[in-house]
Amino acid sequence: MTARKQIRLGAHFPGVNNTTVWSDPAAGSQIAFDSFAHFARTAERGFFDFLFLAEGLRLREHRGRIHDLDVVGRPDTFTVLAALAGVTGHLGLAGTINTTFNEPYELARQFATLDHLSAGRAAWNMVTSSDAFTGENFRRGGFLAREDRYTRAREGVDVCRRCGTAGPTTPSSPTAAPGCSCATAASPTCTTRRASSTCTAGSRCRAARRATRC
């Protein structure tokens, strides 16, 4: 008998579009931690694989003004997921994180941290959206053309993968004799020369080919 195909379930926290009904008397806060905790606990009670947070890095505008008809406002993804790791025990914690407006090293460290703090429950929804409007909130500014977006996304994942599997080793024994090594040999060095890492506003890219050594 072959095992029946198992259904995978993600629980999308109601977001900032018109799918979310805020006018219902039963609708609660979209920002209080209790709302996230309740939602996460329900998902875990229902044996979901993961909780899912979407993200948009600039408040939406309509006809030149902030769009006010849908829910507005959401927390920082990493921070709320780290807190949710404390109120759940099995549920995956998936965050939508933009590959254009975050730096690969920092992301790798944040995801590695989340994975430690949740004992192995971190997931990354990689999105590449990069309009100039959103870019105005960031040092990088500007936007990237679609090919460049995915080149940068690939590099971001690459750094995350290499770093995630190559960090220092934790001390093997706290009672090691004085003078003994705390960690093993130097942690591997990651070098990534990235085609898109030097993009500046208006998407001028250094044409350097990517060279990765680890």
Binding site: R109, T113, P168
Partner: peptide, 9 residues
């Protein structure tokens, strides 16, 4: 160098 040891996943 990366500053976080390999995480569970």
């Amino acid at each position: 160098r990366f500053s976080v040891p390999r995480s569970p996943q």
